[in-house]
Write a protein that binds this DNA or RNA. Structure first.
Lengths: 86, 86
DNA sequence: TTGTGACTTATAGTCCGTG
DNA sequence: GCACGGACTATAAGTCACA
């Protein structure tokens, strides 16, 4: 049993998944920003849920991390990932 | 065997899923717009992939249709739905 | 390496009409 | 019930200097 993953906003879910996945791939915000053709500051703010990011930029970020967009908006991305990885 | 669902942009996937789901629930664009607190014209354009919709509005639209956001960005929403419905 | 505030400019999003 | 257009206003996008 784990705790029930509080009521996060979609922004926060997206941002959190983005950050965790980025770190998993050992990328800095700047690396990711470059790969997604966005600014580092912008990525930083998206990760913290401060920006109301658009679907185009969400897609670029997903691309840069080589995941599907639906994974990044999934509140349970972690559990899903652990099933895959084992 | 069905055809392999062409290379749609995330906007088009989202818009298409939105439209199909809306019609499935027998809602007009205006009904949906009202429920999601958006303008009807805007909903029309999002459905056609003309707008770069933001995550907040995507979430409102998902809410209004009573589905999860990840379903609306899923290129294979239909197959997934048919498994559920049977 | 990341966060913050201040800022400009592009475009998201609305409201009014029309066919 | 929907697509399309023009004219608007709100806000997302993007950049900088500095902590």
């Amino acid at each position: 049993m784990k705790k029930p993953a509080a009521h996060l906003s979609p922004r926060e879910i997206f941002g959190g998944n983005l950050r965790r996945l980025r770190r998993l791939k050992d990328l800095s915000q700047e690396d990711l920003a470059l790969a997604a053709d966005l600014s580092r500051v912008y990525v930083s703010e998206v990760e913290r849920g401060l920006r109301n990011v658009s679907i185009d930029n969400m897609a670029q970020l997903a691309d840069a991390l080589e995941v599907e967009l639906k994974e990044l908006v999934d509140p349970d991305m972690f559990q899903a990932m652990q099933k895959k990885i084992g």
